[in-house]
């Protein structure tokens, strides 16, 4: 058995093998692995006797389940209307030039991945972004760069 298979089997033992266990299993995988791979999703499909396409479909519905490899730190900048009006484009520009990647990409050292996402519920303090589970609000380009630089040295 591969590592993924072992992990998924343990989680299926823990949560059970009916359809409702799918989300808790995926959430736990994300906690351990940060993202899911086709290998993991196939293992989940096998354990729960679902079709792989269905498992992929479910995983892809949630913005917090990344179905492609992501870096150690995943940046999710809000792109919804309030943050947009409060200047998210400038933040994107600052992040892209600091990290030298475009939205959707991961840095070659696999440290950062940059995404945009929908409303984070921090509209009153926009523009807002998440780095993994940490929220950063009232961003300016300068502030955003400073935050990233801190992470670079972590």
């Amino acid at each position: 058995m591969s590592n993924s298979e072992i992990l998924v089997k343990e989680l299926a033992d823990k949560y059970g093998r009916n359809r409702e266990s799918l989300m808790p299993i995926l959430q736990d995988v994300i906690e351990v692995r940060r993202y899911v791979t086709d290998e993991v999703l196939v293992s989940v499909a096998k354990e729960l006797d679902l079709s792989a396409a269905e498992v992929f479909g479910t995983a892809s519905f949630y913005s917090f389940i990344d179905t492609k490899e992501v870096g150690k730190y995943v940046i999710r900048l809000c792109k919804t209307i309030v943050c947009d009006m409060k200047g998210k484009d400038a933040i994107i520009g600052a992040l892209e030039s600091t990290l030298r990647i475009k939205v959707g990409q991961t840095t070659p050292d696999k440290k950062f991945t940059l995404f945009t996402t929908n409303c984070l519920g921090w509209c009153h303090k926009g523009p807002a972004m998440l780095i993994n589970d940490e929220v950063y609000t009232e961003l300016t380009p300068g502030k955003a760069i400073e935050i990233i630089e801190n992470y670079m040295h972590k």
Binding site: E54, G57, S60
Partner: peptide, 11 residues
């Protein structure tokens, strides 16, 4: 009973 096709993504 194949489910080769499924819905993915959202919005």
């Amino acid at each position: 009973a194949v489910s080769a096709l499924a819905v993915s993504g959202k919005g």
